[in-house]
Write a protein that binds this DNA or RNA. Structure first.
Lengths: 309, 309
DNA sequence: CATTCATCTTGTCCTGGACAAATGCCTCAG
DNA sequence: CTGAGGCATTTGTCCAGGACAAGATGAATG
């Protein structure tokens, strides 16, 4: 009986909508109100909570910070600006010197010049090769876009637009690469439920394919049991899972451990993405927090596993 | 403190997980138990509900049927087989005669011969053109895959795999098409929050691009306010939104009406996808439930809007 | 400096009631 | 027989306020 873009009487947001938009569960919203006094929504005639857009924005920032390890009690009293500042500090002094290329790309994005953006990216690939493009340009650009979004200098749809064009470019490049059926290792790529970001996956696939691996991507949000079934059915040498910064550290750790336990021992498990570092040194899990780790891991696999089969 | 693939003591599923897997909200699960006696989960030592995998499977089927207009009170007493039967009846007698091509494709999918699957699709494009491929082969194949999944004859990851390969093929075809910057109409494609399926969008984009339109895809799940902002910023003549069968009919109707109200009057709104028919005849919204409607709509737009600008 | 243990914090789940919106059903006039 | 209008029922969402397990923190100890 309820819909996402519910009729908003005066721009006020009911609790279900607030959950969807901020990512904070309804129960948690009520308990935060009880414990920390934030948020303190007004009520409609029926006594139902109505949140302001500012509340929801602050909740979204809090959620992001909590996923990075912060604690709600510390964050609740802070202002929106404080939260934004705290989100941006971890990555130091890269605001002005982001590089002319990145600035150029951001500029085209702001002007919605999608063709120009794609051309810029395509020529960067031709100029320096796909590997350096993925490792340098894309990584920097993605971070710059993320920060611009946090700081409110970019609309949500502009971020969507950016992702869409980037996916397009990378997919195109990938299709141009040879895919020898017998190549090794056979790598199964995916993301676990709750992690919808497939971009990191695509970047990883580029580097793996460049390194001569045989890639098979399942796309995002594959249930763990299905990952295991697919790995078995496809005879994968390696299962590569991407954890974006969105995933709470603890969730990533546990998911990796569970998957490791369920996979055949001879299948390697590689964890990539921003939260991969938090997966920590786990037995039988190779963490590749940075993209350049990928070619290295491939080399290592070949030197170790060259014998069998 | 909770994670998707939570440690399952004996294959039993706590309520949060059940919500994620079935798509039925926690509150609704409790209220169904109170009213209809289904599901009736066992409890752990703390009194928390624990659902079986069969319960969750039945819940997922019920949710699908309810989204199609059925009512929970009627469905709760039925068995899993009854639900499956009810889901499959609407599309009559297309089980055996699905066509040799579709059978071939399904077969390759079951054998995880992804390269073979892509080759098959690619040659179909060459043989009959992109338009017929999208309208006939893809539409039939997608339905066949969906039905195989409902009937349990296909794993979830196999469906992921299928989607991934299809997206790849379509994206590749799309990149081969000319994109004259001045072409009209300018169409903005997207999906509203809650609708993650981007495949329909991609199919529509193919047909629109073939029809000479200038497409700009925002990808999935763009908030309505952002759709409006993007349409304005990009000077879109048409905003095309895709509603898959996953979207409840009422939700689709309301979302379309809200979006229509928020868009500038001179911007047309087109609704496509399986639930588009349920959007019903709404003022100012053009519903395109079937893919062949797209070229038609393009012709109509050109004949009407040829004058202005 | 590392490790163990007690204390705090935090998210999730519980019950049982309430209500508004939407749907289906029935009646009545044309 | 058909269509419009009104009433009853169905259904999803929300509320309050309490409880608890598991993780994080910090202090005391070896």
């Amino acid at each position: 009986m309820n819909v996402s873009p519910k009729s908003e009487p005066a721009g006020l947001i009911p609790i279900g909508e607030a959950e969807r938009r901020s990512g904070v569960a309804k129960e948690t919203l009520r308990v935060w109100e009880r414990r920390y006094g934030f948020p303190s929504p007004v009520r409609d005639a029926a006594g139902d909570r109505l949140y302001t857009a500012e509340d929801v924005e602050k909740l979204r920032l809090m959620k992001t910070l909590i996923d990075h390890g912060d604690r709600p009690a510390r964050l609740a009293p802070l202002s929106r600006e404080d939260l934004v500042a705290r989100l941006l500090t971890p990555s130091p002094a890269n605001d002005g010197e982001a590089g002319a290329w990145v600035e150029d790309a951001l500029d085209r994005l702001r002007r919605h010049d999608v063709d120009g953006l794609r051309e810029l990216m395509q020529s960067a690939i031709y100029a320096q090769g796909l590997a350096r493009f993925v490792q340098d340009n894309v990584a920097t650009l993605t971070r710059a876009v993320g920060e611009a979004w946090i700081g409110g200098r970019l609309q949500v749809y502009e971020e969507h637009l950016f992702t869409e064009q980037l996916v397009r470019i990378l997919r195109g490049a990938l299709d141009g690469l040879p895919r020898p059926a017998a190549a090794r290792p056979r790598v199964l790529l995916t993301t676990l439920p709750g992690e919808p970001h497939a971009l990191g996956l695509l970047m990883a696939e580029c580097l793996l394919a460049l390194g001569g691996a045989r890639c098979l991507s399942l796309g995002a949000e594959t249930p763990p049991a299905e990952v295991v079934a697919a790995a078995r059915a496809h005879g994968a040498d390696v299962v590569a899972v991407s954890f974006s910064a969105m995933v709470p550290a603890e969730a990533a750790r546990r998911a990796a451990a569970d998957l490791r336990a369920a996979l055949p021992p001879e299948t390697e498990l590689w964890a990539g993405g921003a939260s991969a570092a938090h997966v920590g040194p786990a037995p039988g899990v190779r963490t590749l927090p940075n993209l350049p780790d990928i070619p290295e891991a491939l080399d290592h696999w070949r030197s170790v596993a060259a014998g069998p089969r």
